[in-house]
Design a protein around this nucleic acid. Sequence first.
RNA 1: GCCCAGAUGGUGGAAUUGGUAGACACGAGGGACUUAAAAUCCCUUGACCAUUGCGGUCGUACGGGUUCGAGUCCCGUUCCGGGCACCA
Length: 945
Amino acid sequence: MAKEYNFREIEQKWHRLWTELGTYRVKEDASVPKYYVLNMFPYPSGAGLHVGHPLGYIASDIYARYKRLQGFNVLNPMGYDAYGLPAEQYAIKTGQHPEKTTFANIDRYREQLDKIGFSFDWDREVRTCSPDYYHWTQWAFQKMFNSYFDEELQKAQPIEKLIEKFKAEGCWPSDEKEQSDLLMQYRLAFLGETMVNWCPKLGTVLANDEVVNGVSERGGYPVEQKKMRQWCLRVSAYAQRLLDGLDTIDWSDSIKETQRNWIGRSEGTEVEFRVADSDASFTIFTTRADTMFGVTFMVLAPESELVEQLTTEDQREAVAEYVKYVKGRTERERMIDHKVTGVFSGSYAINPFTGEKNPIWISEYVLAGYGTGAIMAVPAHDSRDYAFAKHFNLPIVPLIEGADVSEQSYDAKEGIVCNSPAAGKTPYCDLSLNGLTVKEAIAATKRYVTEKKLGRVKVNYRLRDAIFSRQRYWGEPFPVYYKNGIPTMIPEECLPLELPQVDKFLPTETGEPPLGNAQKWAWDEAARQIVDKSLIDEKNVFPIELYTMPGFAGSSAYYLRYMDPHNDKALVSDEAASYWQNVDLYVGGSEHATGHLIYSRFWNKFLFDLGVSKKDEPFQKLINQGMIQGWSSFVFRLRGTNKFVSYDLLEVQYDNEAKKNRYFYQGQEADPVYADISMVSGNVLNVEKIREWTIEFRNAEFILNESGQYIVNQAIEKMSKSKYNVVNPDDICENYGADTLRLYEMFLGPIEQSKPWDVAGIDGCFRFLKKFWLLFWDKNGELAVKDEKPSADNLKTLHKLIKKVTADIEVFSYNTSIPAFMVATTELTQQQCRSREVMEQMVILLAPFAPHIAEELYHALGHETSVCDARWPQFDEKFLVESTVTLGVQFNGKVRFSMAFAPDAKPDEMVAQVVNSEEAKRFLEGHDIVKTIAVPGRIVNIVIK
RNA sequence: GCCCAGAUGGUGGAAUUGGUAGACACGAGGGACUUAAAAUCCCUUGACCAUUGCGGUCGUACGGGUUCGAGUCCCGUUCCGGGCACCA
């Protein structure tokens, strides 16, 4: 009997031995070059790991193992992003402490991860919710609080330097409260009274990236704008560095582009407008300084502070009403319909170029948060201004030759400028732009504005400061207490400030965040410890902040912590940070493009300014694995009944208004209901099984089609517990083994592409491993490998594979290396290869992809050490040289035949070889050769007349 | 609306980046072994025509172009995916 590929036994054995032997433990070693591979750590959700999670982990594990085989000291850690909303909401529902569910989920994740055979160094595991870890999140927050951004140096500086500067300039107030308020405008972590995204349903504020299409990313609840006092991070200070850094890192163009959009750099001009019959003036921002002569009105954002100031008495009522209307609109409403609305303020602004009086309007199409919250409107060359002008009957003055603005505005930044007065013709302005291109005109106006001190050149960024506090329980507490209303940091040596226990995870009855339920939550400044709240009125006892930090706090610097996870003196020691530098390869989903990947770049840049991080950019190369989607299945319940109708019996209508399909059965409407993916095979529902699934189906009536089947409707969607389409990897590991799972996930397609999970092809990968296994054993189950010299064919097969796989791994094209393995295995089987030398290298090549089988075979070949410590095979061209390449040869695009060339043949030799061949001579006879084209080692074309 | 990436057999996807399109796998069909099934192995599998052999024609979303040669480069169109979106 041939020896069977018993993957269960092999995989269990090596999981045990790898742990016992500490195969994947890694230490800093200055004599070996480092390589840092990192996955975005998972949030341990209650649904457990699904087949989408390991996609990125497998890809990076392959790379990590490959780098190790190449002699690098590879850091490949894993941990958990353990703070999050689901655990808290579960806690609210059940009263169970979020820590308990989180830890249970972590244990489950760990168990699932262990089955897949990753080379993670689990001694370095981090959990964001553990005090040893969030100690350093709190520490970094305090450092940000105590820093400001120096515009000239373009880096963070200690706040003390700013105080020195204020003192030197004589503007340092003596009052403590005033000092605090002044510094608050500069600190990198600061308390700000700003418009925030408030989600009433979640009872918390959200960051911009947590709001998608005007509703909360988690839950999809409405979000409204509200002015609140919140902790913020001055991410916007780093806008230019965040933008510049993109040019130094190896990320996909689309992610870089997304970040560039998010940062939204815009070069323009700020111009000051005086208000007629008043001492007031205000500044506007424009990118189209060339259109100064086309301004016909001005617009203020309804939230702007100028509104109050510039509204005249007779317009006061109308303006108040309009502002009230705008406030009543949610973010989503404002996004969905761009209604043209507005009100006249009663005031006029004087155009500094023309002296004309332009009416000042107030409209919601101008945003308070961008630029100065006020614009000059040029209806001829801006479509929004145009719509507004048409609606309110305001004049439109075109400024570009040939621009027809009778139907729509001409927004393009091109053309020749006209309609500006000749130089010196107005008493206000001796600038003429006529005849210039738009680009020249912008530049000329910028110069003019700067010279005449009418304003200044300005760069604006769309990037906003990040709202950094949340009204929730399950997050890092702020190490802050309020001393007479002044936010004060808990001394660094008293960190971490541990999350207090509470009996209820909901807000308090007085509307305080959940931490308001904690009784022992006050800071005794003298004793330097947490004390009971009831002592607050006593001397030196002050209330502690009730907000907690958002989800991205803990995930912003975790890659630094992996370098030195047990250090209780620092986030990371200088030695460890100097050795590991930054992450060489980061793998994760592209959905974090505007969240985590901006925040951690910001966070790292700050720590770089502090000297803690050694690189300005945290993640040198980024690979975005695609999402593995699930097949959701729907059954259809007739409205108001407990009857379910087979999908093929339904009539489908598209509802244009609701933008979705509606379903009817004999005139009765049916609603789709999710059915668990495990109840369905193909598109046929297992009716018996679904009856057992939930009570809802137990006594349901199923209306089947003619063949007696219940057909479900299927859709490809993101895998999620609530869609009942989650496929977990455990079953695959059980039935096929982890090595097959690993191969198959890579074989599915390019790593960066999203694709639905489909087990249909998995047998191919399993068969390959079985064939590979059988290469090593004879019919009696004895090792078939001998110390014999490899044949030329053996070496050719091997080196073809080395070349292909090495090149593939370097560019993460794993899906094409697996076919190469299959071909090589088939070839070696046919060649009946028995050479130890060849077989051993085959094993090493396979080791990154299928580590269990490789380890087993490596030991079967007589090695005592792990295959992880072998050396990656070196490709040698000489084993391929004796082969020939067959190529097509074409005469005048008509005649074609084949000829063999040596792969290193020179173009001239190739042409001569073709021309002198008997076959070619027949065709060439009586023709003139017009030209010959030869591609080195590839192809020859001969054009004849 | 703007920006970015795509479109290749029944399916997932290859194609040395301008050089024999469809590797490899799945599925399907046929065959071998077997009492039978599973497993395994072999053959066929883009379409059409010819199949007595050779073969031939058309084919990479659509329409043009550059080139001896285009899935690949250029221009235009359609469709799908992603990002941003009153950002002045």
